[in-house]
Design a protein around this nucleic acid. Structure first.
Length: 618
RNA sequence: GCGACCGUAGCUCAGCUGGAUAGAGCAGCGGUUUCCUAAACCGCAGGUCGGCAGUUCGAAUCUGCCCGGUCGCGCCA
């Protein structure tokens, strides 16, 4: 797979593969199963290949291990294997030679940090953010934005072509409701379109929803229990009003679809305002979502008819109870693509989107960073798209469609995270609070720092805390949002990682102050990895490229978080045990400066991949 | 009713796709600073990995059945 010539897991894998092939030609394809050893007292790496081979070869696993050891040619990179290298049921323990470790480390001490070019380079379409028209971004959009952006950045870092798609919910009846509402108010002179703000839109959206929400259940109850003429009259009036509003919304929708100039221009104004607010919030979150990434549902509206027509013509879709559906194997519920009244649904839009993303955007892989509750929907749509041939690429292969599902953000009470009054929490307000709390912490710890600097740091720390707390949890699980925990400077948090980076960088400031890095001779100094902390730090640094691969494959950014936390921990232990500027001799000092520099670069690179801007001081 | 996901220390979470004695942080107890940011580091204590069976050299991880929780399930998005 990779062409990494410094990744011990890969190199040992090749060597052990050869050893297995030499010892057991009949099992030459066996996986060498190289992994880092948990207990460093036993070794650096281990091969677990002997055990699974036992049945296949018909010999005791320890004998197999002995045979592999006899054939393994690793003397140039590791300490010699002996019978004592075989432990337990047949583990083979391997310890790298110090000079080998240093040489691998020197290899990744390059601008790439050991990340090889992609193989092959793919076009990856990432669906992220997914805000709705006339709504300000709130907690419900947090994960789709943060995780989607982190995944997109991961692919970009690995050298792939990434196309972000903000699938804006800007079409359909709810949108027609608010558009109609704003049109009415504007025409009645009760609002000014030019000074409209996003929170106004949010309010009108809710009002329009209320206008159209008929209390049909209440009306039925009144009829059923005979609750009197007054209650009946009130409810009938409410329901009739709501029905009328809904009818008007439906007619607005038709006008919108027909691009009626007045209706359309108001809708466009709302859409522009929404995107503008969304992009502003994303910029504050350091999520790379810009206007050109917008690909709203409306952009597919002209394609829905042709798509459905195509599906009918080719017999992919069939009629069922007046609606048009696609049935796919293994899923009971059919995928409905046209309602009995002729209207299209979000499955229709998603099919059109897949067609465009594969056909027009050239996607080899489509990632959907969307709420886990939509699992069934995506299973259906993906299968339907496959059946329709919309996933067929130009090269004849099929695009990989993946739903990167995520769990909910919960409050301390384990319920969905809301304000006390039950409202969605706006992301801007969320960031404000994180920033304020971070500012208090920074001020307490660094009272002498200029106010401007403290404010800048507080903003960065607050955003880092929110994003890291989200990214560091297993994507598919719900997580509990807690300011105190995410802003803590100890443990697996954003602030802790930023602090680790700040401490490394501060060494170089001190070195410059003391005139110790003159000529930066350390940049090419030989790496000496004598202390156990230095060795552990080196081994951790070598895992970076492999970690990015695993994030890209699993779509799990928390693996990168865990890695960076390991790295920060390894550095902190090193930092504590190994003086850098006060090192016993110049060779050690230069080696340690180089180690620090590499650590800083990997930490900063990893944070950047997560979408967290690094800091110099805090 | 059917389906998906989840259940790991008092709390919040990892556990690298089946490996050795299940790991962190917080909370609790104890240590380390004339020295590069102590916002740190080192240690102690804390577990029937929801339960039972199965698969095999080996299971927190895979399979089945239960228990508990969350979320979905034909014309909303």
């Amino acid at each position: 797979m990779s062409t990494a010539h410094y990744d011990p897991v890969e190199i040992l894998g090749q060597r052990f593969r050869a050893a297995i092939a030499a010892a057991f030609p009949e099992a030459a394809d066996a996986d060498p199963l190289i992994t880092a050893t948990k207990n460093t007292a036993l070794g650096d790496f281990q091969s677990n290949a002997a055990m699974p081979l036992a049945k296949r070869v018909g010999k005791p696993p320890r004998d197999i291990a002995a045979a592999i050891v006899a054939k393994a040619d690793i003397g140039d990179i590791a300490e010699p294997l002996t019978p004592a290298s075989i432990a337990g049921p047949g583990f083979i323990n391997i310890r790298l030679r110090p000079d080998t470790l240093a040489s691998y480390l020197a290899h990744i001490d390059s601008p790439t940090l050991g990340v090889p070019p992609p193989h092959p380079r793919e076009t990856i379409v990432v669906d992220l953010c997914g805000v709705n028209l006339a709504k300000e971004m709130h907690v419900g959009h947090l994960r789709a934005t943060i995780i989607g952006d982190a995944l997109a950045r991961t692919f970009e870092r690995l050298g792939h072509e990434v196309k972000r798609q903000n699938h804006l919910g800007d079409w359909g009846l709810p949108i027609a409701m608010v558009t109609g509402k704003i049109k009415d108010l504007a025409e009645a002179g009760q609002l000014n379109l030019d000074t409209l703000k996003i929170d106004d839109l949010d309010r009108y959206y809710k009002a329009a929803q209320r206008d159209c929400a008929a209390d049909e259940a209440g009306l039925r109850a009144v009829h059923r229990f005979g609750l009197g003429p007054k209650a009946l009259a009130e409810l009938e009036e409410q329901v009739n009003g709501a029905r009328e509003a809904t009818t008007r919304a439906k007619s607005t929708l038709l006008k919108l679809q027909a691009h009626d100039p007045t209706t359309y221009s108001i809708w466009k104004r709302i859409a522009d305002l929404t995107v503008e607010a969304c992009v502003t919030t994303c910029a504050r979150l350091h999520a790379n979502v810009r206007p050109e990434h917008t690909a709203g549902e409306s952009s597919y509206s002209e394609e829905l008819g042709p798509v459905v027509e195509d599906l009918v013509k080719r017999g992919i879709a069939e009629e069922s109870e007046g609606a048009l559906v696609i049935r796919v194997e293994g899923i009971e519920e059919p995928c409905i693509i046209r309602k009995s009244d002729g209207g299209f649904l979000y499955a229709t839009t998603d099919l059109a989107a897949i067609r465009r993303r594969v056909g027009k955007l050239g996607g080899d892989r489509l990632i959907y960073c969307v709420d886990a509750r939509q699992s069934l929907h995506f299973k259906q749509v993906f299968a339907a798209a496959d059946k329709a041939g919309y996933t067929l690429k130009k090269d004849g292969g099929r695009a990989r469609l993946q739903h990167a599902a995520f769990g909910m953000v919960l409050g301390d009470d384990g319920r969905p995270f809301k304000t006390r009054s039950g409202e969605n929490i706006r992301l801007m307000a969320l960031i404000d609070e994180a920033r304020d709390r971070a500012l208090a912490a920074v001020t307490q710890r660094s009272p002498d720092m200029p106010e401007n600097d403290r404010a800048t740091i507080a903003e960065a720390v607050g955003v880092a805390a929110i994003k890291y707390a989200d990214l560091s949890n297993d994507r598919v699980k719900d997580y509990i949002f807690n300011f105190d925990r995410m802003l803590a400077f100890e443990g697996n948090t954003g602030p802790y990682l930023l602090y680790a980076l700040v401490r490394v960088r501060s060494i170089f400031r001190k070195a410059a102050e003391r005139g110790l890095d003159a000529g930066a001779a350390w940049k090419s100094a030989p790496l000496v990895l004598g202390a156990t902390q230095e060795k552990l730090l080196a081994l951790t640094l070598l895992r970076y490229a492999g970690t990015l691969d695993s994030v890209a494959e699993s779509l799990e950014p928390h693996r990168l978080c865990q890695y960076l936390y390991d790295l920060a921990g390894a550095f902190s232990s090193f930092f504590d045990a190994c003086p850098v500027l006060q090192a016993p001799d110049e060779a050690t000092r230069n080696s340690r400066l180089r180690l620090c520099d590499l650590t800083a670069r990997v930490l900063a690179d990893g944070l950047t991949v997560l979408g967290i801007p690094p800091l110099d001081r805090m």
